[in-house]
Write a protein that binds this DNA or RNA. Structure first.
Lengths: 286, 286
DNA sequence: AGTTCAATTCATTTGCAATGATTTATTGCC
DNA sequence: GGCAATAAATCATTGCAAATGAATTGAACT
């Protein structure tokens, strides 16, 4: 009978592409990892790894097993959590969010969530749509709020907010001034560049900024223009907003999670809270 | 870290509602089963069983764990099979079928399947729709061919054949003679009785038969009438067939499998073969 | 060739799973 | 109420498999 610990060891080896590094990560001695993997191979009657000089790589069967192993491990963790949290959600919930969403929408949501489920330890990390999806796929985040639509067989998405992106620059700033954008992987940036390309208005000078505040400061200083959700600019004087075509400016923020693992109770509670909000009259919403 | 063997032991205890019987079934000594379940409880920090005088029953947390455990065990088995069968389907495939479908449709299908996938050991059992669905849910069958539609959150169905049920009796037989039907749980029988009830034509005298041949023999002998797929009567003289209303007679046979476990490769191959058949022009089909 | 990094091999230890005998507790019956 | 009968808990003991650590092999880069 298959053994989850063996699978965990195998998955670590597969991810690290090295038996020694996996041993280090798992706090095992290297020879033990070798033995466990060999045990799995004996048990299954197939070879899982190609032993190369440096490190190892997966055989076709190894790749098949890795896929199943990752799912099994995720489900085992879920099972453990589920029985531990039979009365109300608890434990860690790792949530990813685009920076703009984190600034605009999350404070309100998270306040309510924390009040309702005090047992949950929320970790929010921000990042670009691309980065966040990678992390959800790697089981490093339970879910992420990103710009939709998401086309991926292993991901499930639920629409959560609708936003309107607007073009923003300081009063009197040069129309052909620089573009102020987040780093590669940001979907708003992709929309911005895609739109300008489609209109034949590229290339612009591009300035990458790591933070939302940085972008806003530069825009206010007349250094360039940006494309961000309208409410970001609320209460900021001296900035001119202009609408953009619907196919560029209408974005639907989605809560994305893995499709192959049912949501843990802490995540289910977040989904419930978000869909409640969905049904009630859109007070204060864009 | 959770352990699949512990889960297997726990699932056996839950199903048997008895530690001793589970031990017997698993070929363990009783004290070991006790120890393993207690180990699980310690590890999870919850009590899984209510110890009553005779046997045990599940606590709420136990019920939660059982659900997850059964899924995990099924997925672990699938994982093991998948790596073993990386080149073509192999191993056992337990398929259920209604008796009529087995007689009419399966020979052709299975011949092609066996030829294409010689590594697969097919087990076909017949039974009523109800019995078969129970067995699929209990992981005792990988899939079953039953009368649709199937409304069950844990089951996935794919339409496979369309049949026309017709009313059959011997020439000159009494119109109000007995109903010849399979045992309780047969969906054709349910349709038959439902229809007559809806028309206010019940009660009839009912004769239950265990086999298709038995029913056909009795119909031919003028003992009664039955409701079965039209092609069942091909080449049988002296039997009068009359159509019935569409909502009674149009049935769609479905291949039903568990929804929470992806099909193993042997089953995936069967699905592929059946949907091939679906796309090609309906030569020889009803 | 020599160095280095990484995997294998193997003897040894450790720890947990499994056993078997015994005790405790509950149920049903006279 | 007392007594089998059944079932679970307890506990000392065994046995096997996981983990360790030291030594060895082997590939890749210089």
């Amino acid at each position: 009978m298959l053994n989850l610990n063996d699978l965990r060891i195998f998955a670590a080896v597969a991810q690290e592409e090295s038996i020694s590094r996996a041993a280090l990560r798992l706090h095992y001695v290297q020879s033990n990892v070798t033995a466990r993997v060999r045990g799995l191979e004996d048990q299954l009657g197939v070879s899982l790894l190609h032993r190369r000089g440096r490190g190892v790589s997966l055989s076709p069967q190894g790749r098949v097993l890795l896929e199943h192993a990752e799912r099994l491990l995720a489900l085992a963790e879920l099972a453990e959590r589920s029985v531990r949290e039979t009365d109300g959600p608890a434990g860690p919930l790792r949530l990813g969010s685009m920076e703009t969403t984190a600034a605009l929408r999350l404070p309100d949501i998270l306040a309510r969530y924390c009040q309702r489920h005090p047992g949950v330890a929320l970790h929010v990390t921000t990042g670009t749509t691309h980065e966040l999806l990678e992390q959800v796929l790697a089981h490093r985040l339970e879910a992420a709020l990103v710009d939709g639509p998401v086309e991926h067989a292993e991901l499930a998405a639920s629409p959560v907010f609708d936003e309107e992106l607007v073009l923003a620059r300081a009063e009197g700033a040069d129309v052909s001034s620089a573009l102020l954008v987040f780093r590669r992987g940001c979907s708003y940036r992709a929309r911005f560049e895609g739109w300008l390309r489609e209109e034949g208005r590229l290339p612009y000078r591009i300035m990458e900024m790591g933070t939302l505040e940085g972008i806003l400061g530069c825009v206010a200083a007349g250094l360039g223009q940006t494309l961000l959700p309208r409410p970001v600019f609320h209460g900021r004087a001296g900035i001119v907003l202009s609408p953009v075509p619907d196919h560029v400016g209408r974005v639907r923020t989605q809560l994305v999670r893995r499709a192959d693992v049912p949501p843990c109770s802490a995540l289910a509670a977040l989904l419930a809270l978000l869909s409640e909000r969905d049904r009630e009259p859109a007070a204060g919403r864009v």
